[in-house]
Computed example of a mutant assay.
Amino acid sequence: MLKGKSIVVTGAGGGIGRAIALVAAAEGACVVVNDIGAALDGSGSDEGPAHRVAAEIHQAGGQAVADTSSVSEADGAEAMVAAAIKAFGRIDGVVNNAGVLRDGFFHKMPAEHLDQVLKVHLYGSFNVSRAAAPHFKEQGSGAFVHMTSTSGLIGNLAQANYSAAKLGVVGLSKSIALDMQKFGVRSNCIAPFAWSRMISSIKAETDDQKERVARLKQMTPDKVATMVAYLLSDAAREVNGQIFSVRNNEIFLFSQPRPIRSVHRGEGWTVSDIAEHAIPALKADFYPLEVSADIFSWDPV
């Protein structure tokens, strides 16, 4: 499905990114395996993970090069796109998967934890996409796949920075889709459910928490990777600006914000009118304060 295509996968040294790189290569793509080898909180660096995954692809008969540039810097993004063109002569797809976590309750969160998470998830997605965009425009084709999260789409506790970044990625993807559709370029999002380093930090102290972690461990990264490979392929040429989720063997299409109800008053609204009439009329359609686990509450199958 991806024969002859050149794909950049960020954060591909392990977990979901590694699975995406391996599946893309198995489908015929040439892959730039990008990973700086940082810890989950973004500290440190290690060239080993990217090179090991590239070696795995080579051993399986595929083509890959390792890249250890940082997505959080524009120069790093340019370098990984340049690596694809140097090694494979072109670039056809970008998977923005790299991420870090700095969880904490909002009232305790230092500004630097917000900045760090935004730099990797949101700025990183912008940087790599922006570096690839001129090449996509020139050749009249290309596909972006961005990783969002139900933490942003629905909500989760103690993840204000991560949630803001991941919902920002959704807006970025939609804008890319709108701006570049005339050049034959597509941009879509996936909210993945899969056991990986990014979610291995989930607390598992209570019986309910342990049960949730056990369910998550059933959801392997390869399930997400096959959906990514499809979105990168020409078979998905009519899929653009969408938000998907993959949860084990289930694929979901997410809704996108649209008005759901309105109230009108010809003479306008006073503060008391809003309190007495507008909000009571709208309240039945308020969204409850739920977290992702409240919505996806059944066992994966």
Rank of each mutant, 00 (worst) to 15 (best):
W269S: 11
E267I: 06
G28V: 10
D207K: 15
P259K: 06
A191I: 04
V33W: 04
G17C: 11
L101K: 06
N127E: 10
C30F: 10
A38R: 14
A24I: 01
E276M: 03
L2G: 08
Y287W: 13
D41I: 08
K119T: 07
G15M: 09
S173I: 04
A143S: 15
E78Q: 13
L40D: 00
S297D: 15
T150V: 15
A278M: 14
R215P: 00
A177G: 08
G268T: 11
E290M: 14
Y123H: 13
I199W: 03
F105A: 07
K166Y: 01
A38S: 15
E276F: 00
I57N: 01
I251T: 15
K119L: 01
Y123D: 09
K86V: 05
R130M: 07
V239P: 02
A194P: 03
N249P: 00
A12N: 06
E211H: 11
D46H: 00
F254M: 13
D222K: 00
A177Y: 02
S149T: 11
S149K: 11
Q218C: 06
A54M: 13
I16S: 01
G142F: 07
I279M: 15
F244R: 05
S187G: 04
F136L: 05
A204G: 12
D294S: 14
A235S: 14
F126W: 15
E56N: 04
M1Y: 00
V169W: 03
R215H: 11
S43A: 09
A39E: 14
H113M: 00
N248G: 00
G124T: 09
E73C: 13
P192C: 14
S292R: 03
F254Y: 15
S272L: 10
A281G: 07
A29P: 05
K86D: 15
A29E: 00
G48R: 15
A98F: 09
I36T: 11
A54G: 03
R247H: 05
G61L: 02
G11E: 12
K3T: 13
R261G: 03
E138V: 00
G99R: 04
C189K: 01
L172A: 04
A191Y: 09
Y287S: 12
S151Y: 04
F88C: 07
A79L: 06
V100E: 02
S200E: 15
V81S: 01
F183E: 07
G28E: 04
E73A: 14
A24H: 03
V224P: 03
I7N: 09
A132Y: 05
S233D: 04
R90C: 05
R90G: 02
E205C: 02
T10H: 12
F286R: 09
F106S: 12
S125R: 07
A214M: 10
T206V: 07
Q242W: 01
R197D: 13
E27F: 00
E290S: 12
Q63E: 15
R237P: 00
Q59I: 05
A84W: 08
I176R: 00
V71I: 10
G14A: 12
N34F: 13
Q139K: 12
P110W: 04
R215Y: 05
R237N: 08
M147Y: 13
P257C: 08
E47V: 12
L231E: 05
K166T: 02
